[in-house]
Amino acid sequence: MAYFTAFILAIISGMLINNVLLSRFYGICSFVGVSNKLKNAFWMGVAVVVVIVLAALICYPLYMLLDAAGISFLRTVVFILVIASLVQFLSFVIKKYSPTLYKAFGIYLPLITTNCAVLGVVEENAASHAADFGAAMANALGTSLGYLVVIVLFSAVRARLETNNVPRAFKGLPIALIVAAIMAMAFTGMKGMA
């Protein structure tokens, strides 16, 4: 039971307190590029959740193997190949079994290979040698759910920003970054919860 509580707490902390986009800065490119339509942002977020959890699941034993063999310096090459082939494999499977879902994921699935959030989580899990399998999975789940929450919230804010009157120089990206700063401050407030 204590283990289960720790697992849930680790997920919440990864999701809200150390949010992947707003305090760890992984995946900002997709954050800036994709998130101006709520529906697109949601499907992108779901795709990221699936890929991060699967990648963490596969890379954990692989890293143990590399570490035992004493060639842990090869981890970056191995991880990125695993992620790239995982994304390729997933898009084949989804295309075969659910064309509707494939259409919903659209272009976002191949883009996830170069989303730093995936490689970032896997590298973090590898860097914390002491972490057990549960902690690694909690980190993956918490990070990816945090990504989903923030990208959906942010896309809703951005949709309203577009119809609002902002100073000419701030139109587009600059005002979006300022909004992100205010969101980051709000998420800093959650530190009191831990």
């Binding site: 000419r168 120089a169 005002i175 992100a180 700063a181 205010i182 800093t188």
Partner: peptide, 25 residues
Amino acid sequence: PIFTTPAGAFIVFGIVMAVIAAVNN
């Protein structure tokens, strides 16, 4: 000290981008 936190990163980047946009405009 806020400028060394993540929120400060977004603010500085946003304002620098706005200055560049203003000059271009």
